[in-house]
Computed example of a mutant assay.
Amino acid sequence: MDFNWDRTKKSNTSRTIHAYSNAPFIELFVDIASQGILPLATMVRGEGSYAAEFEDVEWKAYCSLAAVARMEEDDDAEVSTEVTTCGPPLALKLSIHCPLPHTGTGSALF
């Protein structure tokens, strides 16, 4: 089971989350709050490829996203995966590595 979010439909407050599994149902949680249980639909990419699409899911920095695969809607048996979203960028540090012949990085910058 795996899931990801649609990076083409960005907003500051919501995302579309795609959950992939071969189980018939997926429940999505954001910071332990259920976003509902959806049946998986066969995807165009071929046999054995299934997904559930959760639209307009609240999106914020450092939240926990968990997808739980279920064999039935009210089944307690589950398989899950979880990720934590990142926060805003804090800094970007660039440096140049000077080429040195004795390190094998060359002798000049291009």
Rank of each mutant, 00 (worst) to 15 (best):
W59Q: 09
W5N: 06
A108E: 13
T105Q: 03
V79W: 03
S14Y: 03
H18D: 07
I17F: 12
L38C: 05
A41G: 09
P101Y: 02
Y62L: 13
L100D: 09
S14E: 09
S80R: 02
I37D: 01
T42W: 02
G48T: 06
W5H: 06
W5I: 07
E27V: 00
A108P: 03
F3T: 04
K60F: 10
H18K: 06
P24E: 10
D31F: 00
V44E: 15
D31S: 00
A108D: 10
S95F: 09
L28E: 03
S21E: 03
Y50N: 15
G48I: 10
R45Y: 13
S64V: 13
T103Q: 07
P24C: 06
L38G: 03
E55P: 05
M1F: 07
G106R: 01
A33W: 00
R45P: 11
D74Q: 08
E53W: 00
L109Q: 05
C98F: 08
F54D: 03
G46Y: 04
L40I: 05
T103G: 07
G46N: 07
M1P: 04
L90V: 14
K60I: 12
T8C: 08
D76E: 15
L100T: 10
V79A: 14
L94G: 14
A91E: 07
A33Q: 00
